[in-house]
Write a protein that binds this DNA or RNA. Structure first.
Lengths: 167, 167
DNA sequence: TATTGTTATACTCTATAACTATA
DNA sequence: TATAGTTATAGAGTATAACAATA
């Protein structure tokens, strides 16, 4: 358990961290804002999925996800195929053009980070990634569904507060 | 120098980090959004300062700073005193009500972090703070003015790209 | 009746540019 | 002519709520 002064400092760092995100956003293609880039990157990493799953990975409301998805679909970077198992759902899938876009995005962000972090060691970058991942987990675990089947078939009784507008 | 796969992962973490910031933003008082909270916190930490200095600390354009400052001034949390040394400038100063607001903000964010990071060690939180600070520096150093006098009186010849709208 | 996804609306944050008043 | 600060405008991101289609 850390101390109060540390939490205040951490809150300050989180508040100021937007500047880094904005810098990273400035290198994006003009037709692919951050929201669209997030959609493409996650589809590339995790493969085809439904809207609800994507909204969960993005940690935003599904209404927001829907807009981002519409944007990238209009540009031909993804396809929305009907889900044979549930006619309400749609399966999102990267098109070849979308995959190309993902490569471009990856190249741009990697170049910027390689330039900015040229004096960072491999280990330091790894440490930061590890701690950021853990911080996200510490926040996300209290609202993301964790009702995944265990090896015994039991499910964790976690209250599910999805990324859904309360109806 | 880190590897390409690490940079891709770091870019993903940065992209997803907005969720943590949003969680932190949800605990703010309804009359004090994140922009206002940033102004108050920085004034509390660094003491009285001018608009331009505040904009630099916030890493946003001065036009943005001006709006946030107007918001907190209208609520009586800061005062804008004329600068005797330069009639164009104004000195920003926290009022007692502003100091009280800072305490409330600090209390709220500290409580949330203490709850979410209850299983983090003191050292881990310190590590995260250190690495986030360094990452911000690695990004900010290429646009913040560093023309500070050295012990010998010389100044670093760094191109100054301030937080100013190009006129 | 509950869930998946869409759309309309409103709010916050940001940058750009034009404007003022001083320097 | 240049700088400090303000304001107007536009764009992106998000949440809430109402809605349609399906389970």
């Amino acid at each position: 358990m850390a101390q109060q002064a540390q939490f205040e400092e951490l809150a300050r760092q989180l508040s100021a961290f937007g500047a880094v995100k904005r810098d990273l956003g400035r290198i994006l293609p003009s037709d692919c804002p951050a929201g669209s880039a997030g959609v493409l990157t996650l589809l590339s990493r995790h493969g085809d999925m439904r809207m609800s799953k994507l909204a969960e990975l993005l940690s935003v409301d599904m209404s927001v996800t829907s807009r981002h998805v519409t944007h990238v679909a209009e540009r031909g970077w993804i396809e929305r195929a009907p889900d044979p198992a549930d006619k309400r759902s749609r399966i999102l899938r990267l098109t070849p053009a979308g995959e190309a876009k993902v490569c471009e995005l990856s190249r741009r962000s990697t170049e910027l980070l390689a330039e900015r972090l040229s004096d960072w060691s491999d280990d330091e970058v790894g440490q930061l990634i590890r701690l950021m991942t853990r911080l996200r987990a510490s926040f996300g675990d209290c609202r993301t569904t964790h009702s995944r089947a265990t090896p015994t078939g039991a499910t964790a009784p976690v209250i599910e507060t999805t990324t859904r507008t309360p109806a």
